[in-house]
Amino acid sequence: MAVQISPSILSADFARLAEEAAAVSNADWLHVDVMDNHFVPNLTIGLPVVEALRKAADTPLDCHLMIEDPDRWAPAYAEAGAGSVTIHVEAAKAPVRTLRQIRSAGARAGLALNPATAVEPYADLLGEIDMLLLMTVEPGFGGQRFLDVVLPKVRRARELITAHGGQVWLQVDGGVAAETIERCAEAGADVFVAGSAVYGADDPARAVDALRALAEGAAG
């Protein structure tokens, strides 16, 4: 299981995004939280910023759409050059069609589940996705405390992915830090979103390396 670290720019300095992206050039992805103040109670950035960041950053963009009507907007993020675009099952009305459109536009397609959303009903969609994202906090704000209650769902998701037999990545997002990443890796996650744990550190690049080492050690 290859560990991947995706620092969340939600915790970065928005006035210096190009520099903040360069500060974690050793990361696998840059996680971009797109929020519309409707699906979640926060407003962050949208397509124009993603387009600009794509030109300024060498690291591929991992766009997480926490928005209403992702069926309408998700393909545009893929067309803008995002390497991965994730939509929420709670918001999508036509997830299969949207996931296929994301892939057709050249991006990896991700499906996200909130903490209270069971994973089993979506097992049949594993063939339509490249990544399953399990929220380990309630979506909307960075810096929240990790929800241990989600760990059994991470284990179950890993079991379902293994049974499916495809190459689906399992991402966790929310409260991922040195104190929690090992538990996530032990449960079966292999892609880790970390915001304040990276950008709140004195040396973000060193924080990325430290988190990767912890996850790799726990994954065995």
Rank of each mutant, 00 (worst) to 15 (best):
H164N: 13
E51F: 03
A105I: 06
A118R: 15
G81Q: 02
P115S: 08
V49A: 07
A185G: 14
I87P: 00
A23I: 09
N37A: 13
H31Q: 00
T86E: 06
V208F: 13
R103I: 06
D71A: 05
F141I: 01
D173N: 09
G165D: 07
P121I: 07
S104L: 12
D190E: 11
T117Y: 09
V96W: 08
K153A: 09
V193H: 00
L53F: 02
T180G: 07
L151K: 08
Y122Q: 02
T117W: 04
A157L: 09
D28M: 11
L113E: 04
S196I: 07
G143D: 05
G142W: 08
V150P: 06
T59Q: 13
D62E: 08
Q171E: 15
A76T: 04
W73P: 08
A219S: 15
L211T: 05
V119D: 02
A123S: 11
R16H: 13
A189T: 02
T162R: 15
S196G: 05
A210G: 13
G166V: 03
G188I: 11
G140W: 02
H164V: 10
G217L: 14
V119N: 03
T162Q: 14
R100W: 09
Y77W: 05
G174F: 10
V193C: 08
H31L: 02
A91F: 03
W169E: 15
V191R: 13
G127N: 12
A22Y: 04
I181C: 06
T44E: 00
M35L: 05
V50K: 05
A18N: 02
A201F: 11
T136M: 10
E179Q: 14
A207S: 10
P121G: 04
R97V: 13
G81H: 03
F146A: 05
R212V: 12
R97D: 14
T59Y: 12
E90P: 02
D33Y: 03
G46V: 04
S104G: 13
Q167K: 14
Q4G: 08
A219N: 09
K55L: 11
P60W: 12
L113G: 05
